[in-house]
């Protein structure tokens, strides 16, 4: 099992995918911060709650890119066919999935930390450029970092599960992006009661960007979604032929 995990880690390190994902995340966070902080009026950025709301950019970016990395860990293998040698080495398949989920959680946590860190840095610069006092406390930052990174770790595992279930790389990546930016945003307008229970929103609650749910409920829901996706992906991977 340790060998399988080290194999998965080397798979991540030995292609340029992680670098591209990281650069894309930096670009997206910088752009989104610039749009929010520079475009919104000062009164809409004045309070602690307003600023926490802006910081959801970092949490969302962390969750999304962690999920993309998790999904790519399995769909890239299916796309390029490396899943065949992977399963020839480990024909029982379950250790492969366990290793992908483990490595997914680790890299997802790192994506979350990086995204929230970038968010904090860009926001500090943007606030000071406009002369807006930073209203966030040390405990706000702690919850953003730890909550955001935990949410990203869970989203990475969710990405592994969805990728294993869907298998098609483009469909999986487009689906995850659409869920994060379309389905959840639109639902907030039409069915706010349901929207706050959705996976992205529970992550925002974990990181303290929203206060719709308690940490315990948000964490339980997100763990539940992740477990469901991982189980579905796991079961189908054991059953399906590799063609």
């Amino acid at each position: 099992m340790i060998g399988q995990v080290r194999s998965e880690l080397l798979k991540q390190r030995s292609t340029q995918t992680a670098v591209f994902l990281f650069l894309a995340m930096v670009g997206l966070v910088a752009l989104a911060v610039a749009m929010h902080v520079l475009a919104l009026s000062k009164t809409r950025l004045a309070t602690n709650a307003h600023q926490l709301d802006v910081f959801q950019i970092g949490t969302r970016a962390g969750m999304l890119f962690a999920a993309l990395a998790g999904a790519l860990a399995i769909t890239a293998e299916i796309r390029y066919g490396t899943i065949r040698p992977t399963f020839l080495v480990q024909p029982k398949r379950s250790p492969v999935l366990a290793a992908k989920l483990t490595v997914g959680a680790l890299t997802g946590f790192v994506y979350g930390l990086l995204a929230e860190g970038l968010m904090a840095a860009f926001a500090a610069i943007a606030f000071s450029l406009r002369g807006i006092p930073n209203e966030l406390t040390g405990s706000d930052y702690l919850r953003i970092l730890l909550g955001g990174a935990s949410a990203a770790a869970l989203w990475a595992m969710l990405g592994v599960g969805i990728g294993a279930l869907v298998r098609n790389q483009v469909a999986t990546l487009v689906g995850l992006c659409a869920w994060m930016f379309l389905v959840e945003s639109v639902s907030e307008g039409f069915v706010p009661g349901a929207a706050k229970l959705m996976p992205g929103s529970t992550g925002l609650s974990l990181a303290g960007n929203e206060h719709n749910l308690s940490i315990a409920i948000a964490a339980s829901l997100l763990v539940g979604y992740t477990a469901a996706a991982a189980t579905a992906g796991w079961v189908t991977t054991l059953r399906r032929d590799v063609t």
Partner: peptide, 15 residues
């Protein structure tokens, strides 16, 4: 079955 951007040695090391 290869990842095009992985080098030959890493392909074998992964396995």
């Amino acid at each position: 079955d290869y990842h095009p951007s992985r080098n030959g040695r890493d392909h074998l090391r992964v396995l």
